[in-house]
Amino acid sequence: MLESPANEDLSAYLDGELPPEASARVERALSSDPSLQAELEQLRMVRSMLSKHGRVEAPFGFKARVLAAVADEPAPISTWRTWLRRPFGVPIEGFAVALAALLVVVVVGNREQAGDGVLPNNFDAPTPAGEQVIVNPERDAARAQQRQLSLPEPEATPAPTQVDKGEADSVTTVVRGGSVEGLATAADTIPSTDAPDIPTAVTVPSEGFAAAPSPEPVAQPSGTAAGDAPALFGASYRYQVSTSDPDAAAQLLRLAGRYGGRVSDPSGRQVTASLGAGDNGSYRVQVPAENLAEFGASLRALGSVVEHPDDRIFASSSVTIQVDLVQSAP
């Protein structure tokens, strides 16, 4: 019934994807053809159904699992930052070593020029303009000896920077937004490009589409195997549960207990006594990370759950969830 090539235009017409003249042609046909109108209605029905019922929510805790999965990844670096790490194709560590070596040469050279590696005593006292400096080697040597006994060396002489290979192999960068602890710690060490590759877990072949990243070997957080300790990355959630059940707080307490969790009130006091009607409010629930999915699923049984976007990730084996029990109409 919708086989004629012209009918392809019907879908495009429905989507507003036809040029004006083609659109007018379809409208003329529609005005004189009831069967075409019926076809259009069918297409509209399909579109409407898909748009209303086609979307699927990501599983409970999906976002936290993604953030945990990338917690071990190096901090994001943009192209210009990449360039800064390897200006002119030379690793920045190379420049650091060269600079340190240059400093050593300059400082040692100055010291030798000043005599026996000890600076003259007027080094740290600026000479007033026009004042003549009288050099007295014996006096300077005596004072210098005194300085060596009483003052820490670096204040008078910049110590040559010691750069060993270990230091040169890494560079430290500070990640802004320290509140997002899970993605990178405040000071995150980026391995040098010479560092061994991240172990790969699976290789999915890539093809086509050069602009978007092709599937790559996925490095997983280490220690996700059963029995490995602190491999779990906890997450802090905030969930709003709209419920018509006045005893939801009591149920929350029972659920938390079932999954090895603890419930505390906003002031941090642990709630152990049974809760009753009217106790719905905000609670903090700490559950073992491995029970997160089950606990989250059970939360959904209490009412409709809204995930707030301000998740925080912490490196721990337990998850703290703020649960806001909001009374809704039955």
Binding site: A58, L67, P76, G177
Partner: peptide
């Protein structure tokens, strides 16, 4: 923001796209 090193931007991107990607 993400390219500038603000990791919280990634969290927001995941939040924004998780249902679409999963669907």
């Amino acid at each position: 923001q993400f390219q500038g090193g603000d990791a919280s931007a990634y969290s927001e991107i995941v939040h924004r796209y998780q249902n679409r990607v999963f669907t």
